[in-house]
Every structure is written in structure tokens, then in C-alpha cells.
């Protein structure tokens, strides 16, 4: 087992900025998605074809999932949460391509996404309720709970990042180990498991992000209801 197979390789070093293979893969995914969306958006019709119907089905499914959690803010949350789901699905599944590593097996990527979720949840809560009202729920039901709230916010963000990173890295490592030990066709069942795990992890990350954001937006009403 080569240590370079699982390590994060720096492709370019532009002064203090290191361009790793994770970033390059992300750029490739972004370019692929941008190209697909651009091509699709040019051919949208009122009478949809099979591809347009599938894309609309995905968008409507994401919108309905958001609407079930935050009925009044589905259109506001759709770009962020939908982008999380789409990016994570593509990023998790791209490791099935030989020689390509999933960006989500890099802790830097998952940490960056978790940090974005952290800030987006607070920004959405403040936007929906105002700064005072939003920060007030950290003192509910008692100011004694403030440290626990802060610890909860940090720990769930760290857990969000580490969960995705650990699962995806372990999947790639397991597939690599089985490929090295058992041969060429033996990892196929593991790859099927990889597909399922990639979809599940993307769903879990996106759903947790949605719940955190929706929880931040609706915390004041929950606190008022409890009181």
C-alpha cells in the first residue's frame, strides 16, 4: 500500500496557496455541473423531455424535502441545501472513477462545508428573527444553558465535518485494500456499497445542514412554544 494513494497531493504551489488534487477535483466537478446546467438551461421547454423531467424531478424532490422541514423558507434554503446535496452526491461518487479521489475524503473540504453550514444556519436565524431574538434563544430556558448551547453548536459542526470525512475516507481505503488483496473483480460489491454509502452520506450531511438551518430559523418560535 502506497502512502501516496491516500495522501492529499499538492499539484501547484502558488506562494502560500497550495493547489491540491482535492481542489482540482472540485474544480472539475464544478465545471462539469456548470456545463451540464448551462446546456440544460438552454433547452428547457414547457413540454419536457426525459432528461428535463429527471432534472425537474430532482429539483422538486429537494424543494419538497426542504418544504417538509421549513415550509415557509423552501425557496430561500433551496440554493444552499440543494447545492450541498448535488455537490456531495457528485463528489462522493466521483471516487468510483479510477485515479480520481473524492474531495470529501479530505477533511479540509468537509470542514469548509461544515463551517459554511455553521455560518449559514446563524445567518439564516438572524435574518429570520433579528440579532437580539436569535441570540436570546441561547439563554433559554436558562442562562446557565449558554455554555452547553455553544458546545453543542461547535460539536455538531465538527461532527458534521468528521462524519462525512471519516466515512468517505474509510470507504476509499477499504476499496483500495480489497483491490490490493483480492484482485480486480473482488471490490465490485464494495463499490456497490460505496455507491449506497455515498448517497446516504450526502443525504445525511444535507439533511443535517437543513435541520440546523431550519432550527436556527425557527428557534424563537420553539422557545416561545415551550414557555
Amino acid at each position: 500500500m502506497d502512502a501516496g494513494e491516500m495522501s492529499i497531493a499538492v499539484i501547484w504551489q502558488l506562494g502560500p496557496v497550495a493547489i491540491t488534487n482535492t481542489v482540482v477535483t472540485t474544480w472539475a466537478i464544478m465545471a462539469l455541473l456548470a456545463l451540464a446546467c448551462w446546456l440544460l438551461s438552454r433547452r428547457l421547454q414547457l413540454q419536457p423531455g426525459p432528461l428535463q423531467t429527471a432534472v425537474e424531478g430532482v429539483i422538486v424532490a429537494i424543494d419538497q424535502a426542504i418544504r417538509e422541514v421549513a415550509p415557509d423558507h423552501s425557496r430561500l434554503l433551496l440554493p444552499f441545501v440543494g447545492s450541498l446535496w448535488i455537490f456531495l452526491v457528485v463528489a462522493n461518487l466521483c471516487s468510483l472513477i479510477p485515479g480520481v479521489h473524492s474531495p470529501t475524503r479530505d477533511l479540509s473540504t468537509t470542514s469548509g462545508l461544515a463551517l459554511l453550514v455553521f455560518f449559514y444556519a446563524h445567518w439564516s436565524g438572524i435574518r429570520a428573527q433579528g440579532v437580539g431574538a436569535y441570540l436570546k434563544h441561547y439563554l433559554a430556558p436558562s442562562p446557565v444553558m449558554l455554555p452547553f448551547h455553544i458546545i453543542s453548536e461547535l460539536s455538531r459542526t465538527i461532527a458534521l465535518a468528521v462524519r462525512l470525512f471519516g466515512n468517505m475516507m474509510s470507504l476509499e481505503m477499504a476499496a483500495l485494500l480489497i483491490l490490493m488483496v483480492a484482485g480486480f473483480l473482488a471490490p465490485v460489491p464494495i463499490l456497490m456499497l460505496h455507491v449506497i454509502e455515498a448517497l446516504v452520506q450526502a443525504y445525511i450531511f444535507g439533511m443535517l445542514a437543513l435541520i440546523y438551518v431550519a432550527g436556527g430559523m425557527q428557534s424563537i418560535s420553539s422557545s416561545s412554544g415551550k414557555e
Binding site: T26, L33, P79, S108, G112
Partner: peptide, 22 residues
């Protein structure tokens, strides 16, 4: 570097998907 670039990349991806997909 990767951490910051991934954050920027995702924000750009949100913009792309918002304008060309959603």
C-alpha cells in the same frame, strides 16, 4: 489553503447552480 478554496469553490458552485439550474 484547501479549506479556504473549498469554501470559495462551494460558494461559486451555489451561484452557478442558482443561476443555471434552480
Amino acid at each position: 489553503s484547501t479549506f479556504v478554496l473549498e469554501i470559495i469553490n462551494f460558494l461559486v458552485l451555489i451561484w452557478i447552480l442558482k443561476h443555471f439550474l434552480y
